[in-house]
């Protein structure tokens, strides 16, 4: 077991891990970050997406020990206080159905909007295309992401 330290949702956390522990398992089982979902186990589907140093990554194909000294944001961290405009937009659009892809999708969309606050429809599709959803046909998700920008503009 090795001790690692990292920032999780703004708070310094420690964990004891084996070199072969996967990040998804450590975050879910040892640190209670259950928003992260296991779905394919090989980086194909995006359900386990978290932000590592601000970038969307697949926690099912990262060794936990690699994140020593890094910064992690999960959906729990986004939801602690007031929801983000993106989360509100998903609620307004009733975007998700079964909801299992939602945490990963929201983390990917958060990264997308951080990088590009005014994405085109094509950019939304390209930016989120690594996150699979079997229910929605994607359109309600695209609409919600595009609508965030409009809402934020309205606020200004």
């Amino acid at each position: 077991m090795k001790k690692i330290s990292f920032i999780l949702n703004g708070e310094k956390r420690n964990a004891y891990v084996e070199p072969n522990d996967l990040l998804v398992d450590v975050l879910r089982e040892k640190l209670g970050m259950h928003s992260i979902k296991y779905a394919c186990g090989r980086g194909d589907c995006g359900a386990c997406t978290i932000l590592l140093n601000g970038k969307g990554v697949r926690s099912c194909i990262i060794l936990a020990i690699e994140v020593d000294g890094q910064e992690i944001l999960t959906l729990e961290g986004l939801s602690e206080n007031k929801l983000t405009s993106l989360q509100e937009s998903f609620i307004d659009h009733s975007s998700f159905q079964c909801g299992f892809c939602a945490p990963g999708m929201i983390m990917s969309a958060t990264e997308l909007l951080n990088k590009n606050p005014n994405p085109t429809e094509e950019e939304v599709k390209e930016g989120l295309s690594g996150n699979l959803c079997r229910c929605t046909g994607y359109t309600p998700i695209i609409e919600a992401v595009l609508d965030v920008e409009k809402k934020d503009v309205d606020k200004k």
């Binding site: 929801l83 989360q87 998700f96 909801g99």
Partner: peptide, 23 residues
């Protein structure tokens, strides 16, 4: 009426528990 989904807030905050999320 197209009322908003009842379960959406749970799902977009990660609060929604699926079996593997139960301790």
């Amino acid at each position: 009426k197209s009322v908003k989904r009842l379960d959406e807030r749970e799902k977009v905050t990660g609060a929604a528990k699926y079996v593997d999320d139960i301790e």
